[in-house]
Design a protein around this nucleic acid. Structure first.
Length: 717
DNA sequence: TACGTTGGACTTTTT
DNA sequence: GTCCAACGTA
């Protein structure tokens, strides 16, 4: 069998066009991974390109793993020196070798979101800034987008438009300094630093340019400026760059992904060849029509129309439930019914949600109906407190300069080393220009209370022992020793609560991860292990063959497919998300629409859409209008039970309304407002004032709606 | 220093 | 409804 067998003409062309820039516009389900793997095989076997001259980049480890597996299956052997990896892990590999040029050392650690947050909080405290005004979360987002745009603190400050931005840039500068002092990098640094490295040291750049003669990038529509630049630098020499993507599936704009990277590819690279893959092998015609119906409402797309030879198919089923619990119930019952009738495995079903908060209700319903499920996303395994604690211990052993991890575990389990003591140690370390870890050697000099000196010395002593041990034993043994010698497990077991028992269970699971790593990488080092863990996500572990239904966010579902898909919460405010409606700009709404397109195209045969009349948000019941995306679906594709809005549903709610006192706001009880969609209504209660006011407004025939003055499209009459 | 209580603020999506 | 920071108490 030849490598090029079983490819359609377009796919074949994409596989055989090897020299020069190539843009493959691959619609959902058009055999994109197939093309990429065949292309790599073709390079190796038909053109005798060495595997180490090829670089294939994906966004998730799962995609990388899958690509490698499919390639090895195709060529019936394993390839070692071929780089198939994510942006992040490829860049970590490069940094491990070259980072010293930038003044870090090669044992750097990676800070995740929570670590970033801790560091930002420390800096805010140092700078005497109010956490309420400068929320760590928004600061981090801002810094992240600066980095994604390759802006240094100095260059960012030049574009600052107001005082707040200027302060943010100051924080950014301090943050970057502290990271370097801790010999740590955050997720964005991983890629940005490689770009800076390449720009600084042409020799290093040339080395990698020379090595990677053929570059392939998957999901190109999701690249940000920084990733774009990285690829541009690498491909500058040979121009053999093949990017695959679908502008309709660009859903990471909020993370800095710039859809223009794919839209302008042909202008960026001269003599670009464009190949469109439009035949869909996944879904029925009905599902494709539904998806096209929605996405056609977006402007600024590359024209493309998916087609399939699987005509017809079941209609899209729409169900409106009373609230989120009955929505979950409907989904669960339907799954039970269908799996029984058609003897389908539970892994044929997926429930997709816009946000993770929706998971709780869905989970409830599935448990009540005894349906095996697993949740992908939400609180991640590696985000759990106990796992982060253990990892923090390991990270200090790799890199004792890592202050964030040190602060995390210095008093976990409790040893009587509190915040005051920490402050003393930190001040002393700063004065003497040493790390806090080193300062632990001389607590007396640091001026800590006499009560704390012994605990500090004991702590330092076991940590030093762990460092020695880490050099001569495997990670499982090391972790076990840490858990025992620090008394961590003991403290948990003494608690005798269900919660503590779960934590112990989680730690055991972590130990099975370390064991797996030790077995697969004999003599493997701690640095690599901790870095790999940091870059690992829930979805990477995902096994689609497991007998359970999948509950996940639409973002997590990208790249996956299921025979039956449920999309829950199709309501204005949920999907599209309130923030995109609120932002008032069309860009964000279009991204929501693309998200909807991605969700729909996950389905192979059956698609169910659900929403609810009322839903608990923020601990209070809210009614949302049905999602605008439902109106965009061609009517003839939809099947739904006839449901009439009864007045009873709403009058029942009226009794529970409490009229609060009228504030001096312009919204008064008894007053009238006009709503863009629902017409004129009477205010029955007001809570708060001004734009923050929460109103209950009665609309004729619609009942009482809860509205937030600032978000709702209303005006006072 | 540790711990329990309380009041306030917030919830998009992730490598 | 939940998480976190701040505060007061042991």
């Amino acid at each position: 069998m030849k490598i090029t067998d079983n490819l359609n003409p377009k796919q074949l062309e994409a596989v055989q066009t090897l020299e020069g820039p190539l843009l493959i516009l691959a619609g959902a389900g058009s055999g994109k991974t197939r093309v990429l793997t065949h292309r790599i095989a073709y390079l190796m076997y038909e053109k005798n390109v060495y595997p180490n001259n090829i670089l294939a980049i994906t966004f998730t480890n799962k995609a990388a793993k899958e690509m490698r597996e499919r390639l090895e299956k195709l060529i019936k052997q394993s390839v070692d020196n071929l780089w198939v990896s994510t942006f992040h892990s490829a860049c970590v590999r490069i940094l491990r070798r070259e980072i010293e040029v930038l003044g870090y050392t090669s044992n750097f650690v990676i800070y995740d979101n929570a670590d970033q947050q801790t560091l930002i909080k420390m800096i805010l405290k140092d700078m005497n800034l109010d956490e309420k005004k400068y929320t760590p979360r928004s600061i981090i987002t801002q810094i992240s987008s600066y980095k994604n745009e390759l802006k240094s603190p100095t260059s960012a400050k030049k574009t600052a438009e107001n005082y707040y931005d200027e302060v943010t840039c100051d924080i950014y500068e301090k943050y970057q300094t502290r990271l370097k002092e801790n010999n740590a990098v955050d997720f964005d640094d991983i890629i940005m630093l490689v770009v800076l490295l390449f720009q600084k040291d042409k020799e290093i750049l040339q080395k990698y340019q020379e090595r990677f003669k053929y570059i392939l990038v998957d999901e190109y529509q999701d690249t940000n400026t920084c990733q774009y630049m990285l690829i541009k630098l690498l491909a500058e020499k040979h121009h053999n760059l093949c990017v695959v993507g679908d502008d309709d599936q660009s859903i990471y704009g909020w993370r800095g992904a710039d859809i223009r990277n794919i839209l302008n590819f042909e202008n960026d690279y001269q003599n670009t060849k464009i190949i469109k893959l439009e035949q869909n092998y996944r879904s029925t015609q009905t599902i494709l029509d539904a998806a096209n119906g929605v996405i056609s409402n977006n402007s600024d797309r590359k024209s493309k129309s998916l087609w399939t030879d699987q005509s017809g198919g079941d209609k899209v089923y729409l169900h409106t439930a009373h609230d989120e619990l009955s929505e979950a119930n409907f989904i669960s019952r339907k799954i039970r019914e269908m799996s029984k009738e058609n003897s389908l495995g539970f892994n044929s079903f997926a429930v997709l949600c816009r946000t993770t908060v929706q998971f709780r209700a869905i989970e409830d319903g599935l448990i009540r109906n005894q349906i095996p499920y697993r949740i992908i996303g939400g609180t991640k395994f590696y985000d759990r407190k106990e796992i982060k604690d253990v990892l923090a211990y390991l990270k200090i052993l790799v890199n004792p300069a890592d202050e964030i991890s040190l602060k995390r575990v210095i008093n976990t389990p409790k040893r009587g080393i509190g915040d005051t003591t920490w402050d003393h140690l930190k001040r002393h370390a700063t004065n003497k220009n040493i790390t806090v870890f080193e300062a632990l050697n001389t607590p007396e000099e640091a001026g800590v209370s006499s009560r704390a000196t012994n605990p500090i010395k004991n702590f330092k002593k076991i940590m030093d022992e762990f460092i020695i041990l880490s050099k001569k034993t495997d990670i499982t043994n090391l972790t076990n020793t840490i858990l025992a010698d620090t008394g961590y497990i003991e403290e948990l077991e003494a608690e005798k609560t269900i919660e503590a028992a779960t934590r112990v269970e989680n730690i055991k699971e972590f130990l099975s991860v370390t064991l797996d790593y030790d077995t697969k990488n004999p003599g493997g080092d701690l640095e690599t292990f901790t870095a790999e863990i940091s870059l690992f996500t829930d979805i990477d572990n995902y096994d689609q063959n497991e007998e359970a239904i999948s509950v996940m966010t639409i973002h997590a579902a990208k790249g996956l497919e299921f025979p039956t898909v449920f999309i829950a919460g199709l309501e204005e405010g949920i999907f599209p998300h309130i923030r995109s409606i609120n932002s008032g700009n069309n860009t964000e709404l279009e991204e929501e629409r693309r998200l909807c397109y991605v969700a729909i195209t996950r389905a192979r045969e059956k698609l169910f859409l659900t929403n609810a009349w009322s839903r608990m948000i923020f601990g209070r019941s809210t009614s949302n209008a049905k999602s605008r995306f439902l109106d965009e679906l061609p009517l003839e594709l939809i099947e739904s039970e006839a449901r009439i809005k009864t007045k009873a549903t709403f009058t029942k709610n009226v009794e529970t309304q409490i009229v609060t006192k009228t504030c001096n706001s312009s919204y008064d009880v008894g007053g009238k407002v006009e709503h863009q969609k629902w017409g004129i209504g009477v205010i029955v209660s007001v809570k708060g004032s001004g734009e923050d006011a929460e109103l209950n407004v009665a609309f004729p025939d619609l009942g009482i709606k809860k509205l937030i003055a600032k978000y709702a499209p209303i005006s006072i009459i």
